[in-house]
């Protein structure tokens, strides 16, 4: 269709089609989004709600050093030590891969420095105040969950895609779509029940003659829950991308003498990159805003951003502080989405 300037009548028809849905979405997403920015600058009211007096208290609370903060010069030193060792380990691994692929090592060094920087910032944030600690934890755990999901979903996507019969393919795909469609609450509860102290897993461990273990309310349980709930969101886009990838190019690379790892990193990964981007964005956004997983599997000991917001709007009744945290969280999400999606293949992602 050639882009034509719509006539008056057409314009009216377009407006009529758009108005109900668009205004509804605006009312529920855009207007409250603006309101929450205003709320973050107001005074809290006891028992919930706000008093319409402007103050910057909520934002001051977020940026000020926590009362029980152990941030000090020593912390800075140990953060630098952590950053350095994380960067060194990552550099050895990544540069080794780059060498094997006969690539320039520069991107690998950049990636290693980024990993180290993240480790250092995480350490500093954990010592600064409760809010920065929870934000840093949420981001780092969601990144870990994203990497784990890629590691598990990619073999599965390749496996499904390499089936010959379309009936097998569809059956395997439906088996991924069922958890995708099943309620998040039910799936989180399933992990909670399985891992619980008197649960089935511990009974098996006991009947094998070992002591019962505490799985629930640990870091392990929360990470497992993040991966478990987000995994289908990675498998489906990766499968679509794998299916679209041009086999002839993979064959050609092999025939021209590329080693398996080279075929994988130099040909296959660039081909499935749109799927990797979509899957990673979906898994990250889902994980970083998870409420059910840290609540039901972390037991209040391993809170994430959503627990902070719930606490301020629920029990603590400090709505402006909750609003400020929500604004900060949205800002971070939008900025990171822009960096991941906005610059490259963003247009045809969805």
């Amino acid at each position: 269709m050639a882009p034509v300037t719509p006539t008056q009548r057409q314009r009216r028809r377009i407006a009529a089609l758009l108005t109900p849905g668009l205004s509804w979405i605006t009312l529920v997403y855009v207007v409250p989004g603006g309101l929450i920015v205003v709320y973050s600058l107001l005074t809290p009211k006891l028992g919930g709600g706000v008093i319409w007096e402007f103050t910057g208290d909520a934002w001051k609370e977020i940026v000020s050093k926590g009362r029980r903060s152990d941030a000090s010069w020593g912390t800075l030193g140990s953060a630098a030590f952590r950053a350095g060792s994380a960067a060194a380990i990552a550099a050895v691994l990544l540069v080794a891969v780059a060498r094997y692929l006969r690539h320039s090592a520069r991107p690998a060094i950049v990636a290693a420095v980024a990993v180290g920087g993240l480790a250092g910032v995480n350490h500093l944030a954990a010592a600064y105040n409760n809010y920065t600690a929870v934000f840093a934890r949420s981001v780092v755990w969601s990144l870990l969950a994203t990497v784990a999901c890629i590691g598990l979903a990619l073999p599965l996507a390749v496996f499904i895609s390499s089936r010959r019969s379309s009936i097998t393919k569809n059956a395997l795909l439906v088996a991924v779509m069922i958890p995708f469609w099943t309620s998040m609450l039910v799936r989180t509860f399933a992990i909670r029940f399985t891992l619980s102290n008197t649960g089935p897993l511990n009974n098996i461990i006991e009947s094998l003659g070992f002591d019962r273990q505490v799985f629930l309310n640990t870091r392990f349980a929360v990470l497992l829950g993040l991966v478990y709930t987000a995994l289908p969101f990675m498998v489906l886009p990766l499968y679509a991308a794998t299916e679209r990838a041009n086999r002839a190019q993979l064959e050609a690379a092999r025939d021209l003498g590329a080693r398996p790892l080279q075929v994988f990193f130099d040909v296959f990964v660039p081909l499935i990159r749109p799927g990797l981007t979509v899957g990673s964005v979906m898994v990250f956004v889902l994980s970083v805003s998870q409420y059910l997983v840290p609540t039901l599997l972390g037991g209040g000991k391993h809170n994430m951003i959503a627990n902070l917001l719930d606490l301020q709007f629920g029990e603590a009744f400090n709505w402006p502080l909750g609003a400020a945290l929500a604004v900060l969280f949205s800002f971070i999400t939008i900025v990171s989405l822009y960096f991941v999606v906005g610059r490259q293949d963003g247009a045809d992602l969805l």
């Binding site: 979405i25 529920v28 207007v31 969280f329 949205s330």
Partner: peptide
Amino acid sequence: LPVIAPEIVTGVSLLAF
């Protein structure tokens, strides 16, 4: 927007609204 907006932010801002 509703597809990518974090649910928790939508939840609390709707509560305020």
